[in-house]
Design a protein around this nucleic acid. Structure first.
Length: 226
DNA sequence: CTTTGGATCGTCT
DNA sequence: GACGATCCAAAGG
């Protein structure tokens, strides 16, 4: 990874719907202090229209960052012990976000391993939404960080590698509502995708969708609540 | 290989 | 009082 070739994406690219931003994020880099990783699996959440989104029941202290401008990092605490990170997108107030589910370490694997002593293989350092936060040291304090700010501790950068020409699509992992929506996408065949995405149930459901992208990106709430 | 249960606490009902 | 956009180790086939 050559820092000289890193570029910060324009804000307008993040001010689009999460279903457009999600596949665009694939193969971009998340950079933190002493660490960097390539994004290989994400999930789109669509704000107040999406029953699985933290924003479904409106604006609250916890999800405040989701309602902010595109390019912010939304960090939330869950299961009493884990943090997960989203890239906020869309227009301010739309509460669109993309959950980062898996990265492939590109820099600082030693530091990541120090933070994740349980990981015995390199691929286990960042192949899960809470794992990658551990590896990057992302916690409460990182919530609201502007990923497009030059001085930010956590940044989103483009090193020139394009997203895959055809992303793979399937159902989101671990949600209880909106299971039928194929809003998770990943780099096809990448060994870095999350463990949960590899289990049989998730695989079978992905088959049902044929790995195709959602047919409608700009549709309204109709169809989402079936 | 797959399945199960424990950890642990903020948020919402 | 229930339940998470999870992870891990242990137990079962």
């Amino acid at each position: 990874v050559k820092r000289g070739t890193w570029r910060t994406p324009g804000r307008e690219l993040l001010e689009r719907d999460s279903l457009e931003v999600a596949p665009w994020l694939l193969n971009k880099l998340l950079v933190g202090p002493g660490v960097a990783g390539r994004i290989v699996e994400v999930e789109a959440y669509r704000g107040e229209d999406d029953p699985a989104s933290h924003a479904f029941r409106g604006r609250r202290p916890r999800n405040e960052t989701m309602f902010g401008r595109g390019g912010l990092l939304y960090v939330y605490f869950t299961y009493g012990m884990h943090f997960c990170a989203n890239v906020v997108c869309g227009q301010e107030g739309s509460a669109r976000a993309v959950l980062l589910r898996a990265l492939v370490p590109e820099e600082g694997a030693e530091l990541m391993a120090q933070r994740r002593p349980r990981a015995h293989r390199a691929v286990d350092l960042c192949n899960g939404p809470a794992k990658l936060c551990q590896a990057f040291g992302i916690a409460r304090g990182a919530d609201g960080t502007d990923l497009l700010g030059n001085a930010s501790p956590y940044r989103l950068v483009d090193d020139g590698r394009s997203p895959p020409p055809r992303a793979a699509w399937g159902p989101r992992i671990g949600v209880s509502s909106g299971r039928e929506l194929p809003w998770r996408c990943w780099v096809p065949g990448d060994p870095g995708v999350s463990g949960a995405a590899r289990n049989r149930r998730a695989g079978e459901r992905a088959e049902e969708f044929g790995g195709d992208p959602p047919s409608r990106v700009d549709g309204g709430p109709q169809g989402l609540l079936s």
